[in-house]
Design a protein around this nucleic acid. Structure first.
Lengths: 202, 202
DNA sequence: TGTACATCAGTGAACGCGCGTTCACTGATGTAC
DNA sequence: TGTACATCAGTGAACGCGCGTTCACTGATGTAC
């Protein structure tokens, strides 16, 4: 045996991490295999020692990126001060100028959602699985106050994703700020207004 | 003068219409110039008699597609039965399975928003202008019932766009239906709950 | 401890292909006479 | 009304380039002795 047992796994993770940044920034069609490998400090030829094709990397990248987003959402929700709605903490952090401007390390849903919708089945399945986990986590945070946790979870996530897409797409910087602020205000108002008929403890 | 005065304008419109369908379906990078021209029953060589480069077509296509969306939103809002909130009619029509499945002729915001965000300034400016018109129209419909029409307009549009992105991206058909239904329910509840402190007549 | 070696992670040239763009051309057009 | 013609909308071969993928190779590795 040459090289440590974890060496190959580490390099693979490095490729997936680089792919996450490049795909988020340039899109699934915009970032090529050579591009991703270069960002991982490798040459393009070695790619097929780790993945059978580009689509396999895409699916893996989507899974990995959404896992990171899920961890962020949980951390923000859990970190909300007492008396503060966990969903409100999530909304403010997600719809921040910081997140808007850091596409590379941001959530894949606004960056790659449309690309995945056009992509092959493996990527869409990967997204489907992680999307459920994300919605379950949001529903947990919602359940403390809302009647129908899943509906609130889906409604909030739709607002977060759409707000980020619009804030990034507009060429008007001032308007982009308005979109972030107004979407956050709308979502916080909507979740605060949800009838508090407790299901389980916060 | 050869050919009728409107002939060139008609062909140009045909190219833009074909581009709208191809770009929505395949993405800005996924649909090529030759691809678009073929969809318009032309050959690729003639393209540069109408546009100076692909990016110019992209900007024109975004403008045209968002104009069509604006007309749809107005029609749906105006067509709401009496006693029915115009925004609720818009929400139900936008977040329909029909719209989800007809990407080609659907709204460019969920289909191309992320691509435009990565695109050049002209496309982003084109989107910015039309986005304002769309939000103004939605704000008019919201103003009849909501305190802050612009906030409601932005919040609703974010939810519509994000909900459509998620419903199209998930590989789980049943979940896609849930996303459309739950996002619509969430948005209708949020707009119905908005305090009715009238600004101007409906 | 020192060295010869089998392994295999990573390299980079090469492949066929489609991209955006250019350009010399063709042939249908409505006009001038 | 009929015909010769200048115009220019549209054609299709060609360009350089980057894509995803393949493959013969190189050279650092830890092990066997």
């Amino acid at each position: 045996v040459r090289y440590s047992a974890q060496h190959k796994a580490q390099t693979r993770n490095r490729i997936v991490a680089a792919a996450g940044r490049r795909f988020n920034t340039e899109g699934l069609k915009g970032a090529g295999v050579a591009d991703v490998m270069k960002a991982a400090d490798l040459t393009h030829g070695g790619f097929y020692g780790y993945f059978s094709c580009k689509d396999e990397l895409v699916a893996e990248t989507v899974r990995d990126g959404l896992d990171a987003s899920l961890r962020y959402l949980k951390r923000w929700g859990d970190g909300a001060g007492k008396g503060r709605h966990p969903l409100h903490a999530i909304i403010d952090n997600y719809l921040s100028a910081l997140h808007r401007d850091n596409v590379a390390t941001g959530c894949p849903l606004p960056a790659l959602g449309a690309d995945v919708a056009r992509g092959d089945r493996t990527a869409r399945s990967a997204l489907a699985g992680k999307l459920r986990e994300i919605l379950d986590a949001l529903a947990e945070f919602a359940a403390a106050q809302a009647r129908d946790g899943e509906t609130v979870a889906i409604g909030v996530l739709s607002g977060l994703v759409g707000g980020m897409v619009l804030a990034r797409a507009t060429g008007d910087a001032a308007h982009s700020e308005r979109i972030l602020a107004a979407t956050a205000a709308f979502l916080k108002r909507a979740t605060a207004a949800a009838r508090p008929r407790r299901r389980r403890g916060a």
